[in-house]
Design a protein around this nucleic acid. Structure first.
Lengths: 242, 242
DNA sequence: GCAAAAGTGTTGGAAATACACCCATGT
DNA sequence: ACATGGGTGTATTTCCAACACTTTTGC
């Protein structure tokens, strides 16, 4: 008697045909795309094309292709819809309630992403895609409201643990812009002096030795985020903690 | 011309048949089941039945049923394999690399769970299911090593944000047991005096007015975790922070 | 009485908060 | 000159880490 029989071990072929007859479900990827504009945190939404959800908004999503990694699918959706290619992406959660999609069983993997609205004007100007103030997002189609809120909470948490915010800002930014961003994401007011101290203490802002222009007041200095320095000192980093 | 034509709105029927022809993939759920025994953090593993992974260990998992919610599937796996029904479950991440399963495309949703090993002896005594010290887990089948490590890291983080640890302990426990648990999960030594202070300050341990028995030294008091009190004061709670 | 862990308080230092004034620019 | 936000320093408080001795039980 062979070992493989003794232990009921399955050959590759057996496993392959097993997988063939597995139950399968449609798998989609939905993206909560955040941007920052006019000192507000925004999210990119598209109008649902389903009668059931007439004129309600929904997240941007698409089906997973048969030979596509999950992360690649999320990236593809973002790239197709926005034309942007430098972005921050993070998987958040998978939503699989049986009846979440009226058309049948569709499980969806949710990502959020951060993009720099200023550097890249939306290249696909579908007039049914719009930026929405996150505070005004209600009643999305499907279970997208739930997905959206889960992703927003995740972002709020992450941004206090890692310096992600920079992905939403132009390359060079003033400390006020940075503070406005944090206040918009967290929905709270922060003390300006302590905010500055905190970020300077982290020591990964590079002074560009430039100043703002066209502001109706004393111009602020511009800074860049030093990704390299941050990567090197990552271990020491233990969060922002407002 | 009807509204639905104007805006190219899809009827329910149209959407249903659309979903029918969607690309579909096999979707599984894998569980990283943690237990606590002999002052070590353990994980429940089963021997792979695939020739390719001969005698390597793998996580407990199964396919998602067609009419089953994701969380329900995770619960079912745990219940089937361990016979336990009071457990903590949390979805962690979805792994979807195209070639992660040798049998074909299988996307898997990973959960970790915490169970109380003492209260419930494993009811399914399959001799190929065993508890393993988390520090000795290497070279799991499939991408399970990756999944396992992701889940362990998540647990380490969560346990510092929320009082989950109690799910791994008997109903009544001494502070030493609690500390041993935290030390095992985090892999660090903690100061006993400060540990006690911290937990008493949180104020959701209930003194059972009982003491340990059969210990070869001064017996410690036994406590219970007060879930209700914790739920009520959740907002105030901001983490353990060792 | 000895081994082994239970139980308890204090102190110093670091980090976060709160807070007020002068400065540079555009109008 | 004034309105607006830029830029900075200090005092107070709060929280955490470090640390040592007495007590209770089993053997």
């Amino acid at each position: 008697m062979k070992d493989s029989q003794l232990h009921n071990v399955k050959s590759l072929k057996a496993v392959q045909s097993e997988v063939q007859i597995y139950n399968k479900v449609a798998l989609s990827v939905d993206c909560v795309i955040f941007g920052f504009e006019e000192n507000k945190l925004k999210v990119l939404l598209i109008r649902s094309d389903m009668k059931k959800f007439q004129s309600r908004w929904s997240l941007l999503g698409d089906l997973l292709n048969p030979n596509e990694d999950l992360d690649d699918a999320a990236y593809r959706i973002l790239n197709q819809r926005t034309g942007m290619d430098d972005l921050y992406l993070e998987q958040v959660n998978t939503f699989g309630k049986v009846s979440r999609h009226p058309g049948g069983r569709v499980v969806t993997v949710a990502y959020y992403s951060l993009i720099n609205v200023l550097n890249h004007k939306l290249q696909i100007l579908d007039n049914e895609i719009h930026w929405h103030d996150v505070n005004a997002v209600t009643d999305l189609a499907f279970d997208h409201q739930d997905i959206f809120e889960t992703c927003l909470k995740r972002l709020q948490k992450r941004v206090q643990e890692h310096p992600l915010g920079f992905n939403l800002l132009p390359n060079k930014f003033s400390l006020r812009e940075l503070q406005n961003l944090y206040e918009a994401i967290l929905g709270i007011k922060l003390d300006r002096r302590n905010f500055r101290k905190k970020f300077f203490a982290m020591d990964f802002l590079v002074d560009m030795e430039e100043i703002e222009t066209n502001v109706p007041h004393r111009p602020g200095r511009l800074y860049q985020f030093d990704y390299e320095k941050y990567e090197k000192n990552k271990k020491k980093w233990s969060g922002i903690d407002f």
